[in-house]
Amino acid sequence: MDGLTEMLKGTLEGCVLEIIGGEETYGYAITRRLNELGFTDVVEGTVYTILLRLERNGLVQVTKRPSEVGPPRKFYVLNDAGREELAAFWAKWQYVSSRIDSLKEGPR
């Protein structure tokens, strides 16, 4: 779906945390995953800025590994703080989505 950029703001970071939480991965693979999920507007640059923030905020552990093509690649795994942040994201998400759903279902 197109035109999701505004709506995705704020939730994309949680999605990236979730993907990293699954297994050690790198920027391009994360972007591909999001694209396959249907977030086709997401480009690598967007993911790069999110990864930069995660790293600055100490939520991930980063390892540089050589790649077959080009310069070394940065691989990411969640640390304890990252796992906490991820749990907090899902809690917030659940709250927001349940509130919005009940709004749509109308007053009872």
């Binding site: 920027g27 391009y28 690598e44 640059g45 790069y48 080009g70 310069p71």
Partner: peptide, 13 residues
Amino acid sequence: EGAAAGKGVLQLI
């Protein structure tokens, strides 16, 4: 990295 993967810059960002 993007250049090495053969992408255009706007494709990347």
